[in-house]
Amino acid sequence: MGFKDFCFKKSLWVFHLSAGSCNNCDIEILDLLTPRYDIERFGMKLIGSVRHADVLLVTGIVTNKTKPRVLEIYEQAPKPIVVIAIGACPCTGGIFASSYNFAGPLDKVIPVNAYIPGCPPKPEAMLSGVVTLLKAMGKK
């Protein structure tokens, strides 16, 4: 296991970016912080700047107006960074795929490591998705 992989083992810092979502996934992410799920016991926490992040969570469809901002935030992030698409919208466009303001699924804009589908995914699903991803990365 290299040093960089080791860094992803514990206490991930998460930056949350909503490209153009309906709020549901965002609230469910915040829900993870509160007493029932309490991800902070794993050392994970939401942080205010992407420059400190290990994980970038993206929710919502990427609209034409947010596309340059998403790219810029990805540029600013320290590499390696794990990008997780949360919900149906960043994965495929979901119900908004036919919109004139839709700039394409997230993986057409920035590289994505994991997809957690659902509208919205339950907090348990998000936890399980992150754990699955970390396990898969460990095996590499």
Partner: peptide, 10 residues
């Protein structure tokens, strides 16, 4: 009377 909704390159 500026642009309200769309991106700069619309």
């Amino acid at each position: 009377p500026n642009r309200f909704l769309f991106a700069e390159d619309w």
